[in-house]
Amino acid sequence: MTTNTPLLKADHVGIQFGGLKALSDVNIELYPGELIGLIGPNGAGKTTFFNLLTGVYEPTEGSIVLGNEKLNGLPPYKITRKGISRTFQNIRLFGELSVLDNVKVAYHSLARHSILSSIIRLPSHFSGEKEIEEKAIEFLKIFKLEGFMYEKAKNLPYGQQRRLEIARALAAHPKLLLLDEPAAGMNPQETKELMNLIAFIREKFNLTILLIEHDMSLVMGVCERIYVLDHGQLIAHGTPEEIRNHPKVIEAYLGEEVS
């Protein structure tokens, strides 16, 4: 674990929907290169927290800082360009687009050719498109998806769709990758492959990863530190070993012990 300045710092973050406090006083610090788990029972506010980090919602209290830039109030596309990208709990691929085009979309923000140059087909359009295409194909090769390149994304098998969604998120060149239940709906074999994939991309892209997961074997197996949310509040934080034996966590998951 590195101990320099945090890459991402959520400081007393909270959000209120009308009278409902979905999250309150969440403090999380992520250091460069870490792989951190975020767990908690259903409805604890994990995905809401992801939505705050990516700008889908704006926090009603506290601040979120990436590097030394405050992210509060920025629209999602700007936050992505600053270096946070994510996958979704229910896969959100561009179903009618090809696998290749899904990845190309992530490269869009790197494109320098203007709309006008595309409409009148200036040389900058062709060079720009070619660059995007080459990069996207190279990227698909890393993820061993190049065989499905021209397949519509919606026709891929479930496991490959997850893989593509992670590839697409990484193609946006994030510093911080947020994975929302990547193993949901996967069988043990697929989960194992996913664990290998996560370890691989982390090394390859020098990433910081925040992972929401229900599959305990995955969380305990790969994460260095774990935060636990329950009813919109952080109830525990520590190494997998500490979390496993933390009384509050056991209570949140199994209910209070009947003595």
Binding site: V56, F94, H108
Partner: peptide, 29 residues
């Protein structure tokens, strides 16, 4: 056709397919 068949058109199609995902891919929807 030229607009559609470029990165800009792809951005538009991604909005049609899933606006939230397009947003999170860095597209100014």
């Amino acid at each position: 056709a030229n607009f559609t068949n470029s990165t800009h058109g792809r951005a538009c199609i991604s909005i049609r397919e899933d606006e939230i995902a397009a947003d999170s891919m860095g597209i100014n929807t």
